[in-house]
């Protein structure tokens, strides 16, 4: 056994990981979530707003990180739609607009058909230039966004009449998978312009790098699926399940974060077991070397 584990082919580890992720997905294992302070802070920042307040949703992620960030994008859009906020979508990533479309397809189009394009939400689309875009739009949004994503003049969109710059939004929500993302929004928007209130959702790897900005420059932060699941719980508690039958459906697009925490739990336990096993081998090996 010792020899087998010592020279364990890494494909066995891969197989275990596959099983630990696949089995909870197939069994639809779901565990309750207990929202922490940061998720509550994000939720409260949106709750504070009044009907009709403009909110900028910057989707700076791509399909690769959709697994980690998609559920929080869905929850953010649903929360804003339930609060009847005016939603403005933009992206600093080339495929970001497609991520926006996915969220709209999941939430706005099926569940909020009354919301009209140009009056209740608008897709500003992608702009290249990373943080340079933020630097410009914090003072003059229309300098860069002369048209919406579909080529319509920005001045012809009723929703844009009152918006001159990012400072006119009541809240900025950023979902980010890396560069350019939350860090750049903090550095070039909420830090030089303290009136801009920014909340964010990010991947697990990024989250520790953003903690230094909490709470002054970044009042709330959702870290990866865990943060998304906690936020989903808060939104569900307040607004209930919103499916065709008014019941929790399976798998349920508004429970996606909670659902994805199932595989995460088992995978984390597997990681701990692997580390312990690795160390047992290490100590046996050291003892043998010592005795020889």
């Amino acid at each position: 056994m010792y020899e087998f584990l010592k020279n364990l082919d890494r494909r066995w580890v891969f197989l275990l990981m596959l099983l630990s992720v696949a089995v909870p997905i197939l069994l639809n294992a779901r565990f309750p979530e207990k929202p922490t302070g940061l998720a509550r802070a994000v939720f409260n920042e949106i709750e504070k707003l009044n009907e009709g307040d403009p909110v900028l949703l910057a989707f700076d992620f791509d399909p690769a990180s959709e697994g980690e960030l998609g559920p929080m994008a869905t929850a953010f859009v649903r929360h804003c739609a339930e609060k009847k906020l005016k939603m403005y979508f933009m992206s600093l990533w080339p495929v970001g607009p497609r991520m926006v479309e996915d969220a709209l397809d999941r939430v706005v189009r099926p569940d909020f058909p009354d919301l009209k394009y140009g009056e209740d939400w608008v897709q500003l689309g992608y702009k290249s230039g990373y943080e340079a875009v933020i630097k410009v739009i914090v003072t003059d949004l229309k300098q860069l966004y002369t048209t919406d994503r579909f080529g319509a003049s920005i001045d012809s969109i009723p929703l844009m009449a009152d918006i001159q710059s990012v400072q006119d939004f009541s809240l900025v929500i950023n979902i980010s998978a890396g560069y350019a993302g939350t860090k750049e929004w903090v550095q070039y928007a909420s830090t030089p312009y303290p009136d801009i209130i920014l909340v964010a959702g990010c991947t697990g790897v990024q989250a520790p790098l953003l903690y230094p900005y909490i709470p002054e420059q970044l009042p709330g932060l959702l870290g990866a699926i865990k943060g998304a699941a906690e936020y989903e719980m808060l939104v569900l508690d307040k607004y209930g399940a919103r499916d065709e039958n008014g019941e929790l459906d399976e798998p349920g697009k508004y429970f996606e974060g909670i659902r994805r925490m199932g595989p995460q739990l088992i995978a984390h336990v597997l990681m701990i077991l692997l580390i312990i096993t690795g160390n047992i081998i290490f100590f046996i090996e050291r003892n043998r070397e010592g005795s020889s």
């Binding site: 990981m17 995978a267 290490f282």
Partner: peptide
């Protein structure tokens, strides 16, 4: 791209098993 990103889960497990030692 989602597949490539998901491969990370496998590599994280493998690296943890191999490199995380209480030295």
């Amino acid at each position: 791209t989602a597949t490539m990103f998901a491969i990370l889960a496998f590599y994280v497990a493998s690296a943890a098993f191999r490199a995380f030692r209480a030295k």
